[in-house]
Structures are given as C-alpha cells and as structure tokens.
Amino acid sequence: MWKKGMASAVLLVLIGLLAWNLFGPKEPAIGLEKGDQAPDFELKTLDGKTASLSDYRGKKVLVNFWATWCKPCRTEMPDLDAIRSENDQVEVLAVNLTTTEKSVDHVAAFTKELKVSFPVLLDQKGIQARYQVLSYPTTYILDEKGRIMSVKHQMLTKKEIEKELDL
C-alpha cells in the first residue's frame, strides 16, 4: 500500500513537471522579431561613458540607428527628443553609425546643433549589423522588459511614435 502511494505521488510530480515545461511561462527567445528579447549590447556614449541596452529595463526604449549624413535622421531627431522629454518611462538610445562619420567631433557638433538630450551611442563595434540595419533611420521599439514591440525602417513622427508606444 505504501509503495502504491509513493508511486502515485512520484507520477503526479512528474506529470506536474511535464505540464509546467509545456505550458508554464517561458522567456522569449533573443532575436530581432516582434516578441523576441532584443539582443543586449554595450557601447561608449558621446560623453565617454558606457551604456548597455539592459541598463534601461523598466522603461520603453526606442533604439534608433542613425547617421549625421542621413537627412530623415536629422528630421526625426527633434521628435525623438520631445518623446523622451515628455515621458519619464521612455528612453531613446541613438546608436550612431560612427564608422561612416567624418569624426566623433562631427557627431558631437551635430547633436549639439540639434540640442538632443538623449544618450548618443557610438557604434564602432558593428551593433547595427547585428541588428540587421540596412537603411536609416531604423528604430526598434522595446517594451519595459526589453522585448521588441515593433521595428520601423523609416523616419518616424512624434504622432507615430506615440501611437507605437500607446502614449
């Protein structure tokens, strides 16, 4: 009788573990599709600090890939800055394709001219290739847990960003 009780208990535990593995909560895969966990990265900022994507968990994040020579990038910068300035729970990470720029000083002058307040990250490591960025600007919109909500391969207006972020 005792053996049957133990066997039943073990069987129930195994069934429970199987059900948990099949139907329990799962971490999203790291990838570049909607719902995936965005790949983490670490880059130097324009002001010499180091920033990683994971530093901004808890906020919605716009990872904006751009360059100074990109006219649509210049056009959307003020809207990106306004979104960040008006919303405490939104961060903009402007990842500059630094290897195509005249110099880091040129990038600094560009951002100073536009008076942007968000972090400018200098991509000299090929993060843009890792994110499969083929056109500029490209923006990955992430939720508070770092999951990809959407990817936009175009210039965004403030209204479009607000709609994407449900603001």
Rank of each mutant, 00 (worst) to 15 (best):
M1G: 10
W2E: 04
K4P: 14
S8M: 11
S8E: 08
V10A: 14
L11T: 08
L12R: 03
L12M: 13
I15H: 02
L17I: 08
L18V: 09
A19L: 10
A19V: 10
N21F: 10
L22S: 08
F23N: 13
P28W: 00
A29K: 06
A29I: 03
L32D: 03
L32E: 03
L32M: 14
E33N: 13
G35M: 10
Q37D: 00
A38F: 10
P39A: 13
D40A: 13
D40N: 15
F41E: 06
F41M: 14
F41Y: 07
E42S: 12
E42A: 13
K44F: 13
K44G: 04
T45I: 03
L46R: 01
L46M: 12
L46C: 09
G48P: 07
G48K: 07
K49F: 08
T50N: 14
L53Q: 01
S54F: 06
R57L: 14
R57D: 02
K59I: 00
K59R: 10
K59A: 00
K60E: 02
K60D: 00
V61P: 00
V61H: 00
V63M: 04
V63Q: 01
V63E: 03
V63L: 12
K71P: 15
C73W: 12
C73Q: 08
T75E: 10
T75P: 11
E76P: 08
E76V: 11
E76N: 09
L80S: 12
L80Y: 15
D81W: 10
A82M: 14
A82H: 06
I83R: 06
R84Q: 15
Q89V: 04
V90W: 02
V90F: 02
E91F: 10
E91H: 06
A94C: 12
V95A: 05
V95E: 11
V95S: 13
N96R: 09
T98P: 15
T99H: 06
T100R: 05
E101C: 07
K102L: 13
S103R: 07
D105Q: 15
D105H: 14
V107R: 05
A109L: 12
F110V: 01
T111H: 02
T111I: 05
T111R: 03
K112F: 01
L114R: 00
K115L: 05
K115I: 01
V116W: 11
S117W: 09
P119F: 07
V120L: 06
V120K: 04
V120W: 01
D123E: 02
D123Q: 02
Q124A: 06
K125Y: 10
G126K: 07
I127Q: 01
I127L: 14
R130K: 11
R130S: 09
Y131A: 11
Q132N: 15
V133K: 08
V133N: 10
V133R: 05
S135H: 02
Y136N: 12
Y136L: 15
P137N: 06
T138M: 09
T139K: 01
Y140C: 04
I141Y: 01
L142K: 00
D143P: 01
D143Q: 00
E144Y: 00
K145P: 00
G146D: 02
G146Y: 06
G146R: 11
G146L: 09
I148L: 08
I148R: 02
M149H: 01
S150Y: 03
S150K: 06
Q154E: 11
M155D: 09
M155G: 05
M155Q: 06
L156D: 01
T157M: 06
T157Q: 07
K159E: 10
E160A: 02
K163Q: 12
L165R: 00
D166S: 09
L167A: 03
L167M: 12
